[in-house]
Design a protein around this nucleic acid. Structure first.
Lengths: 248, 248
DNA sequence: CATTATCTTGCAACTTTCTGCAAAAATATG
DNA sequence: CATATTTTTGCAGAAAGTTGCAAGATAATG
């Protein structure tokens, strides 16, 4: 049996059962559980399902009703978010980009913090609605369901009129020469305006995204003032430091 | 049974029952109460619910406002929403005002419906993000935490540029002479623009709000084309019918 | 203030996952 | 066609995660 046939079977079963178990698949496909595990690993990496202990569940469109965000790189992101906290002070106006790193950051906001936060991200807006000291401004526009942010002309227009102290940017891909890039044209355009509307740009990026690139350009790497990452070791960080960027 | 299935069950039960108990869940899921407790711990940490002694309650950022109002008069609102459904057809552009009545309506959208929905309401936007056929456009602006809508100049600007087929309006107070009124100036201003930007205005209003008034005026009563209510009896409805408004 | 129910903590049994490795199968090369 | 190389697969032991239990701490209730 070809590996692709197994993939096919797994995805079909997932669609009908809404879950798959290692034990079941091992039996159905007549391969060891290790092979099943490796298959699920591949499928998960291609975003076709979510691996969980004991098997896998479908990729869900809604992170609030489902739990796919639970546990994924959580420690890395929390470490990054903790470092980012020190840049925040009462009275600032902050642009908070969408993404899981920035989401982790707003979850750590101390209750006493007094800020104005402008964001295109619906999860971030929801999170901050509970925060008594934060004024939340949501940029308008069409909602991109996959990333749960607004984007498009209306979003850009609102950001253009803004003057923020800091922009915290959740970065998809970072490369010394190509700069900051993302997978979607419209979201990249929005990020570009964010960069221009803030006095200071801080990128939040997990180390595995450094040195990679995607189709749509956001801005040059020199537009970043600070890069916060989980692994600020010399090898990864020095190319950016040579460009005058603060890497922590 | 996968842990994630338990999470799913707990969240679903929470949505229908508005509470969950350790003892019940332990029985339903066939695991110890300790495991239930640990599950609730995880869900609480991810902001999906609030742990309380003996179980958990839904996560409500604004317990005294929007979320509290969900559930009261639920049957009435569902009846109103069902009537409203017949006005919807594929391809329309709809303005969906904030409020629990309109929220009840979008929850009833059949999966096959193809619409563009413009809304200032974050709960409505979240609900519609899960709907595959609906394009969601969120109006930008400052978030009013009590009602979970955006309002202000940015919101008005986005709505002004719009031409919608129908505006579904969740009405706070309705009076034959005073017209449509609301408790907040900015939200009233937004509603006013919504009325102007739609070809047809349909008010969703529970009967106890008819004949009442609040400080800020939205528009004249004659701006309404149709009023949908749970109690369309002669006594309540006839004053409006005499003004040429369709009451159902 | 005593009683009862609930919560926390540490622990041991158990299950699942990770890691390195070697055999088998598939593919490439001369 | 024989041989070398890569890929795939299964296995075993170590590591990590999950679960239920029990004892002590804490909170609610009359």
């Amino acid at each position: 049996m070809l590996k692709e046939e197994r993939f096919d079977y797994i995805l079909k079963k997932l669609q009908t059962d809404h879950k798959v178990l290692h034990t079941e698949l091992s039996n159905d496909l007549q391969v060891s559980e290790d092979t099943v595990r490796r298959d699920l690993e591949v499928l998960a990496q291609n975003g076709l399902l979510i691996k969980v202990r004991g098997g896998a569940i479908p990729h869900s469109p809604n992170p609030f009703t489902f739990n796919e965000r639970i546990g994924i790189h959580e420690d890395d992101k929390k470490a990054i978010a903790t470092k980012a906290l020190s840049f925040l002070h009462d009275g600032q106006t902050i642009i908070m980009d969408g993404g899981t790193s920035t989401y982790a950051l707003v979850k750590l906001f101390p209750p006493s913090l007094q800020l104005t936060v402008v964001t295109p991200s619906i999860p971030i807006a929801m999170q901050l609605m509970e925060h008594p000291g934060v004024e939340v401004i949501l940029t308008g526009g069409r909602i991109f369901k996959s990333s749960q942010v607004t984007a498009g002309l209306d979003t850009i227009r609102m950001l253009e009129k803004l003057r923020a102290d800091i922009c915290f940017m959740g970065v998809c891909s970072l490369h010394t020469e190509v700069g900051v890039t993302g997978p979607h044209m419209e979201e990249a355009a929005v990020k570009n305006v964010m960069v221009q509307s803030a006095n200071k740009v801080i990128a939040l990026v997990t180390s595995e995204k450094m040195g990679t690139a995607e189709p749509y350009k956001v801005c040059n790497i020199t537009a970043m003032d600070t890069i916060i990452t989980d692994e600020a070791g010399l090898a990864l960080a020095s190319p950016y430091r040579q460009l005058g960027i603060n890497v922590i």
